[in-house]
């Protein structure tokens, strides 16, 4: 296959970037998207040009490190798939692909397709945890968790923190990411005690990080590689309104 690429090249955070056109003439349909970029990079190195910087690590769709916009869709055209799991057989010979980094004020570009997603870590640090110190846990079976709840919690906990939701959201909102964590922990009896302060603290942090807000477009849901649903955002809204109504959970504000 022959693929034409337009890739965002940007020297560093301060530099001005631009789209650069490349041809990759010998793409094998069994390659992953990132392997196709590897091939391009090997060719660039051979020509003495700097390879395209892109984040990636596990290459099996779980670490959440990779991700880019492909023709205007986060992680490319295949639903529920990360870029590393997207294989070239889903494209046609002669296709032209536009590859751009995640764009959000909260995710500044570091270089080429690499962005800084540390805002996600700070969201978790604000409240995305259960405050149990090592050693204080009761027996694993001491608190029962109904299977349905455990399954729903797992659905939400599957989030890999890749940032596709923010990238795709017309408002660059992190609501799906936050909602997923709030739902995961809030659905379990172990996480219930901190539910109010968790949501209040995380929402406040999201504002401080200058993420946008949710306007119920569901673009995030469509590109989430783990298929997380916007139900988790409703849950976050519910928890937030509940916490605010009752005045609980404001200690951390």
């Amino acid at each position: 296959m022959r693929i034409t690429l337009h890739i965002w090249r940007q020297e560093n955070a301060a530099a001005k970037g631009r789209m650069v056109r490349y041809e990759v003439p010998n793409v094998n349909e069994h390659m992953s998207f990132l392997e196709m970029l590897d091939v391009l990079n090997e060719e660039l190195i051979a020509k003495g040009e700097e390879p395209v910087a892109f984040d990636h690590d596990c290459r099996e769709g779980i670490c959440g490190m990779c991700g880019a916009m492909v023709n205007g869709v986060a992680h490319g055209p295949l639903a529920a798939t990360t870029l590393c799991q997207l294989h070239m057989r889903h494209f046609k010979d002669g296709d032209t692909l536009y590859i751009e980094p995640w764009r959000a004020r909260a995710f500044p570009v570091v270089k080429d397709l690499v962005v800084d997603r540390s805002a996600f870590d700070r969201l978790i640090a604000a409240g995305g945890f259960i405050g149990v110190s090592t050693g204080s846990a009761p027996d694993g079976n001491a608190v029962l968790v109904p299977k349905e709840k455990a399954d729903l919690a797992m659905d939400a906990a599957a989030c890999i923190g890749c940032g596709a939701c923010v990238a795709m959201c017309p408002n660059a909102s992190a609501s799906l990411f936050m909602g997923a964590k709030i739902a995961h922990l809030g659905l379990l009896p172990q996480g219930d005690a901190e539910r109010d302060q968790r949501v209040v603290a995380m929402v406040a942090q999201a504002n401080a990080e200058l993420f946008g807000s949710c306007t119920n477009m569901a673009e995030c849901e469509a590109v989430c590689p783990k298929g997380i649903k916007i139900e988790v955002i409703a849950r976050m809204n519910r928890d937030f309104l509940g916490a605010k109504w009752s005045g609980r959970g404001t200690a951390k504000e």
Binding site: F129, I130, V132, G140, M154, A157, L188, Q190, G191
Partner: peptide, 8 residues
Amino acid sequence: QCVAQGVP
């Protein structure tokens, strides 16, 4: 420990 942390 992991159950207490919310591992589903």
